[in-house]
Simulated assay, not measured.
Amino acid sequence: MMNRTKITIGLYYLLYLVVYIGWLFHGSATPWILGYSKQHFGFLLIMLIPFMLPILFVRPITPSLMMIFKQGMFLVSLLYLFLAAYYYYTRTYKFDPILQMPPPDISAEYGSSTNYRILILGGSTSTDYHNFLGDKLLEAYPNIKVEIINGARMWWTSKHSLIAYSTMYDLYDPDLVIIMHGINDLIRSCVGSAYSLGEYKEDYSHYYGAAINGAQPPNFVKYLFGRYLGAVQDNWYSS
């Protein structure tokens, strides 16, 4: 029985080392220490804990070893409670309660303009359209001053743009409004619990998009492992 236990523990450590060595040899694009980022280095320290798991399943060699393990687990539990409390105390998610996210920064002034003013509304596929449009208009009409306001925003649906226009962009008195929508209305608003709550509703009230953390705040465990595991989840064995 003891030999079988030793073999099982040996296989566990062998398989774990294969994966852990991959994490060790994975460099970071933003190194902080020993070629690792802070998140990667913290992840390596956290993943040392599973090395203690076999002690839970075998009888310790000496009572003092079990006492050290119990004290260590007690300290880890206290540290977890402290960090979890700090995490929830310091979390702040600021976003427009109507638009669900901050609108784009706009340098243009309110009211009419001597320039021909164009307003672009849409989702993420429209956020860079103002650069393309500006170059084409300058090439075609070099003597006409055209002012382009980029009102497109990632995650926005047509409902977001409608609210943004009626409450804010209309104040800029645009001469022309270009609206490009479709992807977020058809796909983003129909996704599962990742970005929405409940069944589909025609007024999109089920859809939270990037503001889903406001409706379902992430817990500390998800934050911890999402942050540190995300630092090495791509290309484990690349250098």
Results as ranks from 00 to 15, higher is better:
M67N: 04
D175Y: 03
E147M: 13
F74Q: 05
I68T: 12
Y116F: 10
I118Y: 02
G134V: 06
Y93G: 10
D175L: 14
N150P: 09
L81M: 08
L53D: 03
I98H: 05
Q100P: 12
I144T: 12
V58I: 10
L176W: 00
L119Y: 02
H160S: 06
I55W: 12
M168W: 08
S64G: 15
P103M: 01
T92S: 14
W156R: 00
M101Y: 09
L137Y: 04
V177K: 02
Y93D: 13
G151Q: 04
I163Y: 02
L119A: 03
V76G: 04
K145S: 05
L162N: 11
K159V: 09
V58E: 01
H181L: 07
V58G: 02
Y129V: 14
N115P: 07
F51P: 06
L53K: 02
I55D: 07
G134L: 15
I183T: 15
L121N: 03
T127M: 12
D173G: 06
F74Y: 08
Y169N: 04
G151S: 05
F132L: 11
L186K: 12
E109M: 14
V146Q: 03
P60L: 04
S77G: 15
M66H: 07
L119P: 03
L56W: 11
Y110D: 15
G151P: 02
K70D: 13
V177I: 11
T127Q: 08
N184H: 08
M180W: 11
S77Q: 05
Y172C: 00
L83F: 05
A108Y: 00
G122W: 14
T127G: 14
M168Y: 07
G122N: 05
V177Q: 03
D173W: 12
R117F: 06
E109L: 13
L186S: 14
M66D: 10
L53A: 13
S161I: 06
K159S: 07
L56E: 06
I163H: 01
L137K: 03
M67V: 02
Y172E: 00
F69E: 09
D185L: 00
G151V: 05
L186F: 15
